[in-house]
Every structure is written in structure tokens, then in C-alpha cells.
């Protein structure tokens, strides 16, 4: 029965199940359905209920994952809107790591959209929060993103400094694929900087 404790619980569990299924099959429609289920549960639960916080936290986190997924699939504006919404909601909650992840994903979305200024802004925000949480993989990926954006904007020295720090961290974390990615970016930035310095003033 809609509004009953069982109904709310089943919607929340449905959201969780769909989110987990997304992790396995990477089908974005599962995430969209999960969002719907969380929203239904939130609409039905009383504001004072002790489970509300749990459901409330699941909602922006799912929005953030779905948002970045949509951006990757080319639904840029919809994806970005979801990400910005999740950042706003998570900034009011206690889950700092989820907030940092959402900031990072928003940076990535802006980078995909070639909106370098906003990408840089959100990567820096993510980096600051990951550093506060001492989350090493988060720090590495934020420096990676920031270095990439700075190099794209022509700030090669600053960009390469960030990439170097990202590389060192990836090395410590034994993420060799990432190390190779950073190396490629670093070398491209280095070449671009050299070419620029060879252009007569």
C-alpha cells in the first residue's frame, strides 16, 4: 500500500537493487529506475523518519553516477544538470566522500563539454575535499583531471606539475594503466610547450 512502511522499504530496496545491477551491466536505464524508486520512497516517508537520511543520501549519489554516465553518452545538458543537483544536495549532507566524488564527476563533465574554466574550478574543489579526507585515489584522479585541463588551456608548467604528482600517486597505488595515461598526457604537454617556446616572439 503506497505510503506504508513496507512500500517505502520496498522502494528503497528496489533502488539499491537497480543500482547494484547497473554496476554489473552498466545499463543507464537501471540507474534512471533506481532514481525513480528513491524519489518515490522519499516522497512517501515522513520528514522525521529515521530512515529518511539513508534514502536521502542514496538519491544524490545515484544522481551523480547517472549524471556522469549521461554526459559520457552525449546527453550533456541533462547529465550536467543531474550532477549539479547532486553536488548541491551532497553539500548539505554528511557524506563528504560522496560530495568529493560528485565534484570530481562535475569537473569531468565540464571537461567533456570543453568548458575548461568550470572543469578547473570543480577539479580544484574535488582535490581540496579529497585532501581533507586524505583519499589518495581521489587526490590522484583530481590532479590528473586538473593537470589535463591546465595543459589544454596552455598552462603547461602548472599542468605538468599536477600530472607529475598524479603519476607519483598512481604509482604508489599501483594503477599502471593510469600511470601510462598520465605519461602520455605529460609527454604531449611537454611537446606542446617545447613547440611554443620555439615559435619566434
Amino acid at each position: 500500500m503506497p505510503g506504508s512502511p513496507d512500500f517505502i522499504d520496498s522502494q528503497y530496496r528496489l533502488g539499491n537493487a537497480l543500482s547494484r545491477r547497473f554496476e554489473l551491466n552498466q545499463n543507464a536505464s537501471d540507474l534512471q529506475d533506481a532514481l525513480k524508486a528513491y524519489k518515490t520512497a522519499l516522497d512517501a516517508i515522513s520528514p522525521e523518519h529515521y530512515d529518511r537520511e539513508k534514502i536521502w543520501q542514496a538519491l544524490p549519489t545515484t544522481q551523480s553516477v547517472l549524471g556522469s554516465r549521461l554526459v559520457r553518452e552525449g546527453q550533456w545538458q541533462e547529465g550536467l544538470q543531474l550532477l549539479l543537483n547532486s553536488v548541491r544536495l551532497l553539500s548539505e549532507g554528511d557524506d563528504h566522500l560522496a560530495h568529493a566524488n560528485a565534484l570530481y564527476q562535475t569537473g569531468r563533465a565540464h571537461e567533456t563539454l570543453s568548458d575548461w574554466d568550470n572543469a578547473r574550478l570543480y577539479y580544484r574543489d574535488a582535490l581540496r575535499l579529497y585532501e581533507h579526507l586524505n583519499d589518495q585515489p581521489g587526490i590522484a584522479q583530481s590532479r590528473h583531471g586538473l593537470g589535463s585541463v591546465l595543459a589544454s588551456q596552455g598552462y603547461f608548467k602548472k599542468g605538468m606539475a599536477q600530472l607529475q604528482q598524479a603519476r607519483d600517486l598512481y604509482q604508489q597505488l599501483d594503477r599502471q594503466n593510469r600511470v601510462r595515461e598520465v605519461d602520455t598526457l605529460y609527454q604531449a604537454a611537454q611537446r606542446a610547450e617545447q613547440q611554443l617556446s620555439e615559435v619566434p616572439a
Binding site: S91, L121, L129
Partner: peptide
């Protein structure tokens, strides 16, 4: 700036990110 502001500065203002105070 978004580069130099610290997490403690932001917390003092009641925020966790520069994009919020922008």
C-alpha cells in the same frame, strides 16, 4: 582564489567548496 583558498577557510564560511561561494 579557487587555487589558494583552504578547506578551513571554506569551513569558516560554512561551505566545503569554492564553487559554492562563487
Amino acid at each position: 582564489s579557487d587555487e589558494t583558498i583552504t578547506f578551513e577557510d571554506l569551513e569558516q564560511l560554512g561551505f566545503r567548496s569554492f564553487s559554492e561561494i562563487l
